[in-house]
């Protein structure tokens, strides 16, 4: 499902003294099967933008297109529910949405709502428990008895369970330990690659954006200010700095090494592995001369 936003604007509490403008003239285009990272300072409108992508908010101006549905200020609620079947969203701290008596039931909540037969939903729940690396016996436990990291995984499973074709992730690893963070990010990459899941990731980690995404969108004060391949976006350190964003650690390190060598390398090192390779090549060249 291709997604596009044209001149999208949104105000919270429109028409009251609490009115708060969150988005201005946002443009973006997300192709089927792509992996898009959205970065931006806190309060730049990333979460508000995500809510538009599955019809939880309707733009006050402009058009959001999801597949063949267009959402504008006057789209009916019924239309919106159809979109939610195909666009899954994992909110920030998704463990706050758990409510069922057992983990299995909680994961089955989404699928049952969208009309998937009970047996299939149950089977899917057990598959996901395994896929997310949770112990088997967790299925019949109360979600409130689990550790924070396990609750997070159950909540993520609850969204994956209805097999959306677009997966939206709002800072999915915030508050996890480094290992859990890596495991979960690897899992999303695997789903993206193996099942062709269109993935949209909001993150504060420039490293994650550089490593996993094939497109980066930069938000600043409610506007979409930069978009492009990670090489392009992270190649423009000056502009990123103006939006109060830093560089991925590997790119920052590359800049230092470049200074030392007194010349620029051809490619931008988006990951540590790539950085090591680039430096090795540079050293070899140096040795040959």
């Amino acid at each position: 499902m291709d997604i596009s936003l044209q001149q999208v604007g949104y105000s919270y509490a429109k028409g009251t003294p609490f009115e708060k403008r969150a988005l201005y003239e946002v443009n973006a285009s997300i192709r089927t099967g792509s992996y898009t990272a959205i970065i931006g300072h806190t309060g730049s409108g990333k979460s508000t933008l995500l809510l538009h992508l599955n019809g939880l908010l309707k733009p006050t101006e402009g058009v959001v297109r999801v597949g063949d549905v267009s959402i504008t200020a006057d789209t009916k609620a019924k239309e919106l529910k159809k979109i939610r079947r195909h666009v899954g969203i994992v909110f920030q701290f998704p463990e706050h949405q758990l409510f069922e008596e057992t983990v299995e039931k909680d994961i089955m909540f989404g699928p049952l709502n969208f009309g998937i037969p009970e047996e299939e939903a149950r089977q899917r729940a057990h598959e996901l428990i395994r896929l997310l690396g949770l112990p088997e016996d967790v299925a019949q436990k109360s979600p409130f008895d689990l550790s924070g990291g396990q609750m997070r995984r159950v909540a993520i499973a609850g969204v994956l369970a209805f097999k959306p074709s677009v997966l939206i992730l709002d800072e999915p690893t915030a508050g996890l330990d480094p290992r859990g963070r890596k495991e979960i990010m690897e899992l999303f990459t695997k789903l993206h690659k193996e099942e062709g899941l269109t993935t949209i990731l909001v993150t504060h980690s420039m490293e994650d954006a550089a490593r996993y995404a094939d497109q980066v969108l930069v938000m600043h004060e409610g506007r979409s200010v930069m978009a492009g391949a990670p090489e392009e976006v992270f190649g423009d350190a000056e502009r990123l700095k103006a939006f109060r964003l830093g560089l991925p650690r590997s790119v920052a390190f590359q800049h230092k090494v470049e200074k030392l060598f007194g010349k620029r390398f051809g490619t931008l090192a988006l990951t540590e592995e790539q950085l090591a390779k680039t430096i090795a090549e540079a050293l070899k060249e140096e040795g040959e001369r």
């Binding site: 809510l51 599955n54 939880l56 529910k81 939610r84 079947r85 899954g88 969203i89 909110f91 998704p94 706050h96 949405q97 909540f109 989404g110 709502n113 969208f114 609850g158 969204v159 209805f162």
Partner: peptide, 15 residues
């Protein structure tokens, strides 16, 4: 909080 949870459950198809 209610607003957030409501949105999360709506996203999971609750109506």
């Amino acid at each position: 909080e209610t607003d957030k949870i409501l949105k999360a459950q709506l996203a999971r198809g609750s109506d």
